[in-house]
Write a protein that binds this DNA or RNA. Structure first.
Lengths: 355, 355
DNA sequence: TTGTACGCGTTATCAA
DNA sequence: TTGATAACGCGTACAA
C-alpha cells in the first residue's frame, strides 16, 4: 500500500539500530546509549514519522482512564450538552481503549468543586478535562493536579495562569461584541435603552460574564452609538425576587432590548417577557437549549450565540487523547467560532449530524 | 477493552474447523464443503460476531483509490476550497492506503462534465465523490456509474433520484430564506426594492440557484413583507456587459439590497458597488472567499452565508472511506448548518482550527 | 544497553 | 476443500 509511510522498522534501518532501540527513543523510556540516541534522533528529525494508530491499538491491550470535572448537568441544561459531548468522544475512542469518568460538582457551591476535585485525584486518572468556572477555587485545585502530575485540559472558561495542556472555548470579549451587533440589528431606533442581564451568584468571580459585558459595551462605544445601557445582576435564585427586579427595570426605562449573558438566563428572561407580553423587547442570548429553541421559534428570542458546549467538551477529550496517547501536541488554545443562530437557520443547526 | 468479543478463532474452535474456513464462509468466497458451511453458520447464528475493523484494515493491507469529480478550482475560488477539503481528507487517510485523484471539469461547459466523468470511469476507482452542478447532464453519468458498479457520494448539489450513498451539503431553499431574513434585518425601510442576482450560464439547469431564490422570495411572502424583488441573471462573463446591466438596475430602481446567490458573484457585485460608492445598498452573499472577507471588513458586504465548501468535500471523502473500508453506513443526507458570518464573528471563524 | 521474538485479529497464500 | 502460517505495524517481555 502506501510505500511512502515510514515504519519503526524503516527508522531502525536508517539509524542502523534495532526496532527496540527506536521504540525506546520514541517513548523516552531511557536505557539508550548516547550514541544510539543521537543516531535515531537525527533520523527522526529528517523524516516525518507518524505511528500507525491502527496497528498500535491492535497490539496494545492498554486502556486509558480519563476524568471529567464539570458542573452537575442536572442543575443546568447547558452542562447536559457538555456531558453529551464527553459521551460522544468516549464512544469514539472506546475501541482504542479509552474510558472517561465524569465527576460533577455543585454549580452553586464553590466548596463542592474542591471536594469533587479531590475525588477525581484519588481515582488517579491518566488525564483530566475541567470546566473551572470558579476562578479563586480553581487555583489550588490545579496546584494539586500538578503535584500529582496529572495532565489537564480546560474548557468553557480559560485560566491561562495554570498553563493547561490546552483550552477549548470562545473569545468571550468578541462574543459580547457580537451580541451587541445582533442587538443593534434587531433595533429599529437608536435611542432606546438596552440591558445586560447576568444571572449569577458571584459576578466578580466570573471572568467569563464580565468579558462578555465589556465586549457588548465597547461595540457601541466604538461605533459611536448612543443607546443607554443598564446592567442588571440577578443573583437571587427565587423567581419572585427576579420578577420584581425585572418589573422595576421595565417600568422605569424605555427598554427595547436585553442581552442575557448565560444560556439558562436566556429562557428565564424570555419566559418573563412572554408572560408579560413584551414582544417589543428584543432578546439576544446564548445557546440552543431546548427552552431557548422553543422561545426562538415562538418569536420571543431573536438571536442566540451558540457556544457549542457539546463540541467544546468533545474536543476537550479529543485533545486529551491526542496528547496522551497519540503524543500529538494539542493547540494551546482551540477557539471555536461564534455561531449566530436566528429564526431561519435554527433548524439547519438542529438537523446537522456533524455539529 | 472488551475481552468478551468473539474472534474468528473462537468461531473456528466452536465449529471444529480452521480459521481459514470461517473466513471463507464469512466472505462467501466459496470453496467450502456443505458440511463445514453448516457447522460454521450454526455457530454464527448463535453468537453475535462483530469483526474487529482495526485488525481488518491492518491485515488486509489493501489500497483504495477514490476519485473526485468537480469543477476546475482555477475557474472559481469556491471550488478551490472544496479541493483543499479533499486534500485534507486524503492526507488523513493516506496512511491507511487511501488515495484520491481529483478530476476537474469546465465550470462553463456542460459537455466537459460528461467527458471527464468518462475518464473517471476508465480509471476504475473504488468510489467517486461528485459535485453534480448540471442537472440534465448528471443523470446519464450516474447511470454509467451504476452500470460500472462504482459507489458514489454527492456534495454541494443533491440529486436524490440517483440515490447516492450519501449527500453532503446544505438545505438550499432554507439558505435562501436565511438570506432573506438577513437582508430584512439589514434594511431600515420595508418599501425599498431588492434584487436577487445570479451569475450563471444556464439558470434553468441549476437547481441550487433556483432553490435559493425560491427560499428568498417565500420568506418575504410568508411574512407579508412588501419589498419589490427583482431577479437579475448575469450570464455574460464580460465585465463590461455586467456593469452595464447593473448600472441599468441601479438607475431604474430605488435599490437598497442585493442577494447574490453565488460566492464568486458576491465579490464581483461588491467590487461594483464599491467603485460606484453605493454603500447604501446592502449585500448578502456566500462564503468566506478571500475577496469576500476583504469586502466584508471594508463594510461593503453585510452578511455572508458560509456553505463550508472545504468541510463538504472533506466529509464527502470521509463518508466514502467509512462506507467502503470501514463498512460503516453513511448518513443518507449530511446537511451542514447554515452559518451566518457578520462583521463581528468573522475573525472567530478565520481563527478557528477545527473549522 | 541492545536486539529478537511474540501477540493483537484479520486476510491472504500455499501446500496438502 | 482444507488448514497451517506468514504477513500487517506496534508494543513489550525477555534474553543476550
Amino acid at each position: 500500500m502506501n510505500s511512502k509511510s515510514v515504519r519503526i522498522k524503516d527508522i531502525a534501518q536508517l539509524a542502523g539500530v534495532s526496532v527496540g532501540t527506536v521504540d525506546r527513543v520514541l517513548h523516552n523510556r531511557g536505557r539508550v546509549s548516547d550514541d544510539a540516541l543521537k543516531k535515531v534522533l537525527s533520523v527522526l528529525d529528517q523524516i516525518d514519522y507518524k505511528p500507525n494508530l491502527i496497528a498500535r491499538t491492535l497490539g496494545a491491550n492498554k486502556s486509558y482512564r480519563l476524568a471529567a470535572l464539570m458542573p452537575d448537568p442536572e442543575q443546568d441544561p447547558y452542562w447536559a450538552s457538555s456531558k453529551s459531548g464527553i459521551s460522544q468522544a468516549e464512544a469514539e475512542w472506546l475501541r482504542y481503549g479509552v474510558k472517561v469518568e465524569a465527576h460533577f460538582f455543585n454549580l452553586y457551591d464553590k466548596n463542592s468543586f474542591r471536594q469533587v476535585a479531590e475525588i477525581v485525584i484519588e481515582s488517579q486518572p491518566d488525564g483530566i478535562l475541567v470546566a473551572p468556572i470558579f476562578y479563586h477555587e480553581a487555583l489550588p485545585v490545579f496546584a494539586r493536579f500538578k503535584e500529582e502530575q496529572i495532565p489537564y485540559v480546560l474548557f468553557n472558561t480559560n485560566i491561562p495562569e495554570v498553563s493547561p495542556l490546552s483550552f477549548i472555548g470562545q473569545d468571550l470579549y468578541q462574543s459580547g461584541r457580537l451580541g451587541a451587533e445582533l442587538m443593534h440589528l434587531a433595533q429599529r431606533s437608536e435611542t432606546s435603552a438596552l440591558a445586560v442581564i447576568h444571572i449569577n451568584e458571584d459576578l466578580e468571580n466570573s471572568v467569563h460574564l464580565i468579558e462578555k459585558e465589556r465586549g457588548f459595551r465597547e461595540y457601541f462605544e466604538s461605533r459611536g452609538l448612543s443607546y443607554k445601557i443598564i446592567t442588571l445582576n440577578l443573583n437571587d435564585p427565587s423567581e419572585r425576587m427576579m420578577e420584581k427586579q425585572l418589573k422595576e427595570l421595565l417600568d422605569t426605562e424605555d427598554l427595547k432590548g436585553i442581552f442575557v449573558s448565560t444560556s439558562k438566563g436566556t429562557y428565564l428572561i424570555a419566559s418573563f417577557l412572554d408572560k408579560n407580553q413584551r414582544t417589543d423587547v428584543k432578546i439576544v442570548g446564548y445557546d440552543m437549549l431546548q427552552e431557548n429553541i422553543r422561545y426562538m421559534k415562538k418569536g420571543i428570542v431573536d438571536f442566540l450565540i451558540n457556544q457549542n458546549p457539546k463540541r467544546q467538551a468533545f474536543l476537550g477529550i479529543h485533545h486529551l487523547v491526542g496528547s496522551l496517547i497519540l503524543k500529538k501536541s494539542a493547540p494551546e488554545k482551540d477557539l471555536l467560532p461564534l455561531e449566530i443562530i436566528s429564526h431561519e437557520n435554527l433548524d439547519s443547526y438542529l438537523n446537522s449530524h456533524t455539529h
